[in-house]
Design a binder for these strands. Structure first.
Lengths: 215, 215
DNA sequence: CCGGTTGGATAGCTAGCATATCCAGCGTGC
DNA sequence: GCACGCTGGATATGCTAGCTATCCAACCGG
């Protein structure tokens, strides 16, 4: 398959494919002569993955590159590889050096502890969650451990019973990370959209009738 | 309070505040003379809201403006106002005109129907979810109604029992939308981060020991 | 042997989000 | 009562991300 066909198959313009090649997101095709390379099914897959992470996941190119580098680093064990890819999916957050931040972070650690979760002490998600709590508080919303528990409970079961089962740990390592990344990003989106639908519905239930009568 | 103090209080630089004023995100202060305006607590609140939606929610300025306009449109009922604000939070998705898209969309409609959710037929979330399903399928992940149900179930209870209760429907209308928007965006983030923590934990459980022994 | 494609290099573009600069008019501290 | 610094308002400029366009020489296929 030549670059023009790769472009047609995936709908990604040729200049953009060249850009991804330059950026190292897409491995070069098999160079068959100075001005001709051949691309295969793996390239189509990879290109679709890139677009999904970009468009649905809104990940920056640099994060996508990090994910891809994790996949291609053969020296890593499967768990380490998943971890690297996973961390690349987290937005960077700088811890603030304030008391309110420390308090929020302590609450996060306590939540993880009481659920018995195995999460690295340095996991970026800890700081990210702490930061979100601080932001909520600054906006006047109190957040306590009991507020967080239902979220952890709801999501814990979901991940255990439905997300992990989709990952083919027995297949080639590349397939496993890919499925993991897809699961994290795309099902993250699913969860988010479904939640917004549920909110609309609850809001309608609580308010639409009242509005209709009151106005 | 003068603009310099507003800037110090919120940590937002003066030129940025001026920019938000120009963009209509922040109402002008009370003009006290040709070269002096006074800002109050409402401005501090608004500025924090803007920053939270921008930084945590990653909403574009235009979406934030739409939310704010919904708040300020006094002619709308509370439900309508929440709806407008809510829709502004959804990323725009163009429906594809393909069979696979139509099938995905039908599945979304069925999910909403079987849960008895009150969601507008034109709600952007329907298209958004359909698009995500199409993307998942193109990446080789089959998605069926039974795959989606657990997500709807997990999130339905969460929204009903924990999110809606945080909205003060009896207070001033501005407070209600604000709480609703904050809930949608910030607790959306909470859910996302918690899910990623749960994934890390499950992955560790399933793989870390195996890796340790195998390598 | 020639029109069209390719790889590779470099330059340019657009959107989004600010920053910077400039200016004249205040107004407060002295 | 006056100088210095802040203010509002207008305009210009900057910066990053993610492309997109142009150019060129090598090449292939008919």
């Amino acid at each position: 398959m030549r670059i023009s066909q790769l472009s047609e198959t995936t709908g990604v313009p040729i200049p953009t494919i060249k850009y991804y090649l330059r950026e190292g997101l897409l491995p070069p095709g098999e160079q068959v002569s100075a001005t001709r390379s051949v691309y295969g099914a793996a390239h189509v897959r990879r290109l679709r993955l890139i677009r999904a992470l970009l468009e649905v996941g809104k990940l920056p190119i640099s994060a996508i590159r990090a994910v891809i580098e994790a996949v291609e680093d053969e020296t890593k064990g499967v768990h380490e590889m998943l971890g690297t890819a996973h961390y690349a999916l987290s937005p960077k957050t700088e811890p603030e050096d304030t008391d309110e931040w420390a308090a929020a972070r302590a609450m996060v650690d306590e939540l993880i502890r009481e659920r018995g979760w195995r999460v690295e002490p340095a996991a970026p998600g800890r700081d990210e969650l702490a930061q979100t709590i601080v932001t909520l508080r600054r906006l006047g919303q109190e957040v306590t451990l009991p507020d967080l528990r239902p979220y952890a409970a709801a999501v814990g079961g979901l991940v255990r019973d439905h997300e992990m089962s989709r990952i083919p740990f027995d297949g080639p390592r590349e397939t496993a990370v890919e499925a993991h990344v897809i699961g994290t990003v795309l099902y993250g989106r699913v969860l988010d959209v479904v939640r917004r639908l549920a909110e609309e519905s609850e809001s309608a239930r609580l308010l639409a009738d009242a509005d209709g009568l009151a106005e």
